[in-house]
C-alpha cells in the first residue's frame, strides 16, 4: 500500500506498511539522514521533525497515521539558507558531537514559532530533548538571543 506524504515540499508516494515508524521511512526510504535515531521510545527527541508545522518525535509514529501530512526535516528547515535558530547555534558554538542537534533545532524552531519570546521556564518545560555532550547552557543562551532579537524587532 502506498503512503502519500509531502516531505520538505516534495510529494512522495512510498510503498510501505502503515505501521512503519516515520523515522525509518525518512532515513531509509527517503535517505534523509539528518533526522537521528536515539532511543526508539520518544524519550530523547533526536528524531524530532515537524508534522504540519508541529515538532513531533518520529521514532514511534506510524507513518500511516500521518499520511497526506506535510513533513519538514532538518534538511528542509531553512529552504536553502540557515534559519535564525541555526545561525544562533553557530554564534553560540552550541554543538559538540552534534548528533542530537537536528532534533534539538527542530524542537526549538517549532517552539519559537508558537512562542517567539519565551521565559526560561517556558523553554525548559517545552524542550525535553536529551544532549549527552551537555550543550544545554549554550542552547539556553542561543534561544535567549533569538528571543531578544525578536523582541527588539517587534518593538
Amino acid at each position: 500500500m502506498a503512503i502519500r506524504l509531502t516531505v520538505n515540499g516534495i510529494v512522495r508516494e512510498i510503498d510501505i506498511e502503515p505501521e512503519a515508524p516515520l523515522l525509518w521511512v525518512i532515513r531509509d526510504e527517503l535517505h534523509l539522514t539528518g533526522t537521528k535515531f536515539g532511543c526508539g521510545i520518544s524519550a530523547c527527541g533526536a528524531c524530532t521533525v515537524h508534522v504540519n508545522g508541529k515538532p513531533t518525535r518520529s521514532c514511534t509514529l506510524p507513518v500511516g497515521s500521518v499520511s497526506n501530512s506535510e513533513i519538514t526535516t532538518i534538511e528542509g528547515l531553512g529552504s536553502g539558507a540557515l534559519t535564525e535558530v541555526q545561525n544562533a547555534w553557530i554564534e553560540h558554538q552550541v554543538p559538540q558531537c552534534g548528533y542530537c542537534q537536528s532534533g534539538m533545532i527542530m524542537a526549538v524552531s517549532g517552539f519559537l514559532a508558537e512562542n517567539p519570546s519565551p521565559t526560561d521556564h517556558e523553554l525548559t518545560a517545552a524542550i525535553t530533548n536529551i544532549c549527552r555532550c551537555g550543550t544545554y547552557p549554550r542552547i539556553r543562551a542561543a534561544v535567549r538571543s533569538v528571543a531578544a532579537k525578536k523582541r527588539r524587532s517587534g518593538s
Binding site: T33, I74, E75, W89, I90, G98, S102
Partner: peptide
Amino acid sequence: IPERVNGTAHY
C-alpha cells in the same frame, strides 16, 4: 560546527 547544525554531518 556548521555541518552539525544543518543535518549534513554524516555519522
